[in-house]
Simulated scan of single mutants.
Amino acid sequence: MKTLESTAPFHTEIGGVLVSARGLQKSFHGRTIMRNVDFDMHAGDITVIIGKSGSGKSTMLRALAGLTEPDEGTIDFDGVRVFEDQQRTEAWADKSFHVGMVFQTYTLWPHMNVLDNLTLAPRKRLGMSGSEARDRAESALAEVGMKQHILSRCTQLSGGERQRVAIARALMMKPRLLLCDEITSALDPPVAAEVLEVLRRLKAEEGIAIALVTHDMAFASKAADRLVFFQDGEIAVNTTPELAFTRSDNEELNKFIDAVRF
C-alpha cells in the first residue's frame, strides 16, 4: 500500500515564525475562557506556558492542535492560514500532519503493546505498511530512549516510560510543532526531569517547535526560549525566562512563580 504523506511541503526554517495566532477568543457556556490572544511561535523554540488553572492555557493549545475551534480570530501555520471565520480552512487537512499533541494522561491503549500504539494511526491515516511503520516506531522510540520496550505492554511501564511512549507516538507523524499539556504533572521530579530532557533534545536535534504547559518552574527557567503567562484568559506576559523570573513588573506573575516554585 502506498504511503500517503502530507502533500503540503514544509517551508518554515529554524528561527522563522511557525505559528501566528491573532485575536483568538473562546467561551464555554457563557464564560469567556480565552480573549484577545495574539501569539507567535518560532521553529526550533521551546515556549513554556504558565498560569492558574482555567486561565486559558490548555484552550489555546487545543485550538492550535485543531481540537477546539475558537469563536473568533485567525491561526496561520507555516505561513498558511489554517483557521478563520470560526472554522478550519482547506489548508488545515495537510498542515495538521505537522502538528502533534501529548496529554497529561498518556491516552495510550492499555490492551496494546508499545509497537501497536505507535503504528495504529500511521497505518490507518497514512496508509503506511507494517514494515515501514515498525521502522519509524523504532526510530521514534530510540529518540526518547525507549526502543528496548517496543514489544512491552503499556501496563508494564512506569509513568515516566508511558509518557515517553506518548511522545514517541506523536513523533510518528514527524511533527514540526509539538504541543504538550501538563505532561509531567503526575510524575515524580526525577522522572519529570528525564521526560523534559527528551523534549530539549528533540528541539536541539530535530528543530521541533514545542509549546509546553507546565508548573515546573525549574524547567521553565532553564529550557524555555519564551515564557508566556496567561491571566484571566489573556496573555499578560510574553518574554524571555530571564526577564520573567528576575525583572517582571507583573505582580500576578511574580506571585504565581513564588507560589509554585517552592
Rank of each mutant, 00 (worst) to 15 (best):
L4Y: 13
L4N: 14
G15K: 07
V19P: 07
L24R: 08
H29T: 15
R31A: 12
D45F: 06
T47D: 00
I50M: 05
G51P: 02
S55K: 02
M60Q: 06
A65T: 07
F77Y: 01
T89W: 14
D94T: 05
K95V: 09
V99D: 06
V99Y: 09
Q104K: 03
Q104S: 05
L118K: 03
L120Y: 12
S129H: 10
A133D: 05
G145F: 09
S152T: 08
R153L: 13
S158T: 01
G160W: 02
R162A: 13
R164E: 05
R164C: 10
R164D: 04
A170G: 10
L171Y: 04
M173G: 12
C180Q: 05
D181R: 02
D181C: 03
I183P: 01
S185G: 06
S185Q: 08
L199D: 04
L199S: 04
R201T: 15
A209R: 04
T214W: 00
H215W: 05
M217R: 04
M217Q: 09
F229M: 03
V237D: 11
N238D: 13
T239K: 14
L243Y: 12
A244M: 00
N250C: 09
K255W: 14
A259H: 11
V260T: 04
R261M: 08
F262D: 13
